[in-house]
Design a protein around this nucleic acid. Structure first.
Lengths: 128, 128
DNA sequence: ATTTGACCTGGAGTGCGCTCCAGGGTTCAT
DNA sequence: ATGAACCCTGGAGCGCACTCCAGGTCAAAT
């Protein structure tokens, strides 16, 4: 996930996508949805060029999305980055999100326990 | 989740839904999708009536769904219940599913760690 | 007796998050 | 210099898992 070497002219969208674990289409989709912190730079011919910071931001988006934050909420979070002094609100969003993630994890863990019990039951039954 | 008292004529769909944590529409939808182990009984006038075992099965569906098993895969699992001696296959499905759930949990956990670091960072910045 | 509310079916509609496509320009290795 | 592989935009399409609706039957309370 750490960028080893970013050429001064910036990374192509496919390189940025690969580094962040997204598809090229998804990177463009996130931009369309207003999830980019800033518009990426463009080459002379109009192709997107990503900096290391851009790629780190994509990593933040992945972190939020993969923990189940809806795109609508990610957008609210991103929007705060454009507001000076909004750090307390950003913190509040992250803390609220963490609570939801923890709740979700514990619910899944409970169901996983049930799955394990079912597996044990079948193991017993299958091995005589 | 344990059924305290089931009248001999069986539970209505709304009672079964409430006990299993599903909506009435979802209970009917699951049935349509072939996820019921057996068709529920019907009252004289054609309304569904659920036994305690039916409600437990709905709980199994909730367990699989809430841990991320797609409906298509749940159906495959249910179908095996109609095949005698399919216990080893059912076990295999559950074990494979458990692996996916564990992978998912650990990925979410990794992202959660990153969220926590970000929270700490903001806490530092916000409290002077 | 009638109103309220739960239930029925078949099918349409919804929200989400991508994913793909057409039709076009660009870059680059051979 | 030509073909393969990439990039662009705008918009359509898709898979999933519900959720809702119309139009009707039925049960029970007032």
């Amino acid at each position: 996930m750490t960028v080893t070497e970013v050429p001064p002219e910036g990374l192509t969208i496919s390189a940025a996508a690969e580094l962040s674990g997204l598809s090229v289409d998804t990177v463009r989709y996130y931009e369309k949805e207003g999830l980019s912190l800033h518009q990426p730079g463009r080459s002379a011919s109009g192709q997107r060029r990503y900096t290391e910071a851009d790629v780190r931001w994509l990593g933040t988006l992945v972190m939020l999305r993969r923990t189940g934050m809806p795109i609508r909420d990610v957008r609210r979070f991103v929007d705060l980055y454009r507001v000076d002094g909004s750090e307390p609100q950003r913190l509040a969003i992250l803390e609220a999100h963490r609570e939801r993630v923890l709740d979700e994890l514990s619910e899944v863990q409970t169901h996983l326990d049930a799955i394990n019990r079912k597996i044990d039951y079948y193991k017993d039954m299958v091995n005589r």
